[in-house]
Simulated scan of single mutants.
Amino acid sequence: MLILGTTFFLIVNIMMIAANILSKKTFSDREKSSPFECGFDPVANARVPFSLRFFLIAMIFLIFDVEIALLFPYMFNPSSYMTSLWYANISFFLLVLLLGLYHEWNEGALEWSE
């Protein structure tokens, strides 16, 4: 079993290295690597990085969205209503959620302008 796994590992690595070597372009063309603006030279750099604040807000939104989705089974499972374990689970989950929100607020990640 160990020999079979090692063989598969080596074959996959050899194929990945071969694909990496064969897919490399050997020439670089200035026209192809520059952004297209109706045939004119670009006025400004088109590779400007996006706002890190926007990225952080988007990540926080996605995290809270997933956490809300994790709460749905607790709401729609009638057999688990009103038990002490149910209250403990929801309370712990919301406590972790609120501690994370407080940490983000304390770090200043929720403020859009500086």
Rank of each mutant, 00 (worst) to 15 (best):
E111Q: 14
E37A: 07
A19C: 09
F40H: 11
S113C: 04
L98C: 08
T7C: 14
F36G: 00
L22C: 02
L97V: 03
A44E: 12
T83A: 05
P42A: 08
V12R: 10
I17L: 13
Y74R: 01
L4M: 11
S28L: 10
I57P: 00
F40Y: 14
L85M: 12
P42F: 02
D29L: 13
F76H: 06
K25Y: 12
P35I: 10
M75N: 06
T6S: 06
M75W: 09
L110D: 01
L94D: 00
F54R: 06
D29C: 13
F8I: 12
S84P: 01
C38T: 07
V96I: 11
N20M: 02
G39M: 09
G108P: 00
L56H: 06
P49M: 08
N20L: 07
D29F: 12
E31T: 05
S79E: 07
F93L: 09
F92K: 07
F40V: 03
S34E: 10
L62H: 08
V96D: 01
W86D: 01
W105C: 06
S51A: 06
I21H: 07
T7M: 15
M15H: 02
A44L: 10
Y102Q: 01
F8M: 11
F76I: 14
L99I: 13
L52A: 12
L95N: 06
M59L: 14
E104L: 12
I3T: 11
E107A: 14
A58G: 03
A58K: 13
D29H: 14
L99H: 03
L94Y: 02
A109C: 03
L2A: 08
M1E: 05
N106G: 00
D65H: 08
M59H: 04
S80I: 10
S79M: 05
A69T: 02
A19V: 07
F8A: 15
L98V: 06
N20Y: 10
Y102M: 04
I60S: 01
V66K: 05
D41L: 09
L101E: 00
A44R: 15
I21R: 10
N13M: 09
E107D: 05
F55L: 14
I60C: 00
A46L: 03
L94E: 03
F50L: 08
W112V: 11
N77I: 10
W112C: 06
S84H: 14
I90F: 05
S80V: 04
S34P: 00
Y87C: 02
I14A: 15
F40D: 10
I21A: 11
M16K: 11
L97Q: 06
A88F: 13
Y102A: 07
Y81V: 03
F54H: 08
S80P: 00
F8E: 01
K32V: 00
E31R: 11
A88W: 07
L2C: 07
Y102T: 06
